[in-house]
């Protein structure tokens, strides 16, 4: 039976809680209700209230408490109901958790799970991709899985990590993406990108839900004889610069794709990295496909125009190929 992206996160959390008695969950409506997206459904029945802590609506409280428990050696996994509300716990994450090790050598093993992304008609407050707020913060790790395999492998790595990890789970993938997962324990290393599809003509670097958009586009392009390599970053911080640069060396043309808005998005950092490291391999300008610099709009025609899609990628890829 194929496992959905959502189920994969669930399984990963479940197995980590079975493995390590110090792992516990904390968040709003995560107990009997099982969380807004039902990721933790059934956990409280199995693990009890000690390890599945329902809280008041207090994001700063949730994250702060997770940090405190992490400092004490437990392994908290905090859930934000929507990634958008992580703003309410922002100070605790970027000013405290991220700086503990650097300032005073204290470990904060903590995972903050944040359901992010658009395409669900959520409007400006339930669709954002706030990963760059955290990628800008040394001391954090930022993970954005695209597949069920990676979601499970990365949540397990995140739980075992000795530093704070912000784990973005894309809402539009929860029930749409599934695959057969291997039985037994496996992890996916934080900080390692993967080649989601090999290709010789150009590279698209992306992450999260956009991996599927890139794969769609690659399929269409292949029929035209254009072989597009898809690099799935999986982790944004620390960034696997090597895998990106190696791919660019092979294809000499690169398209950077993300669902997040354009200015100071991940593509900016990637473009700088590529031009610093492998500029002489490039045969064409670095091209970006991103959301525009606006809030995420609600109305379907606006949201559709806002989100990058395969057509937009194909268009740019053809241009790059011709260049």
């Amino acid at each position: 039976m194929p496992t959905t992206y959502l189920e994969a996160i669930r399984e990963g959390l479940w197995e980590e809680m079975e493995r390590d008695p110090g792992v516990f969950l904390i968040g709003e409506d995560i107990g009997t209700y099982g969380g807004a997206f039902k990721v933790t459904a059934g956990f409280i029945e199995h693990f009890g209230e000690r390890r599945v802590v329902d809280t008041p609506i207090s994001e700063a409280g949730i994250v702060g408490a997770a940090i405190g428990a992490g400092l004490m050696g437990l392994r908290p996994v905090a859930e934000m109901q929507f990634a958008d509300f992580i703003t309410c716990g922002f100070d605790q994450i970027v000013n405290f958790a991220a700086k503990c090790r650097y300032r005073w050598g204290a470990a904060v093993p903590m995972v903050v799970r944040a359901p992010s992304g658009g395409g669900i008609h959520g409007g400006p407050f339930h669709s954002q991709n706030p990963e760059m707020w955290f990628v800008k913060t040394p001391g954090l790790k930022v993970v954005c899985p695209a597949t069920a395999y990676d979601a499970k492998g990365l949540i397990k790595s995140a739980v075992r990590d000795n530093d704070p990890v912000i784990f973005f789970e894309h809402k539009a993938l929860y029930r749409r993406i599934k695959e057969d997962l291997p039985a037994g324990d496996f992890t996916v290393p934080i900080g390692k990108a993967r080649i989601a599809r090999p290709g010789r003509d150009l590279t698209v670097v992306t992450y999260g839900a956009m991996v599927w958009v890139a794969l769609d586009a690659a399929e269409t392009l292949a029929a035209e004889g254009i072989e597009m390599e898809v690099v799935d970053l999986r982790t944004l911080l620390p960034l696997d610069r090597e895998t990106v640069c190696e791919s660019v060396k092979r294809t000499s043309k690169v398209l950077l794709l993300h669902e997040d808005t354009r200015t100071a998005g991940m593509a900016g950092e990637l473009a700088a990295t590529i031009s610093e490291s492998v500029f002489e391999y490039l045969d064409a300008p670095i091209v970006r496909v991103t959301a525009p610099d606006t809030p995420v709009p609600f109305s379907p025609p606006l949201e559709e125009a806002f989100l990058p899609n395969a057509a937009k990628v194909i268009d740019k890829a053809r241009w790059l190929h011709r260049y």
Binding site: T87, C88, G123, F125, F298, S299, P301, L302
Partner: peptide, 27 residues
């Protein structure tokens, strides 16, 4: 009220003395 940019009750109109709902509760 939001010209399609936001949905449902996330709306406001300062000329009517109505501040649009902020989704983050209590904000």
């Amino acid at each position: 009220l939001t010209r399609g940019r936001d949905g449902n009750m996330h709306m406001g109109d300062m000329s009517a003395g109505l501040v649009a709902i902020i989704s983050a509760l209590a904000a």
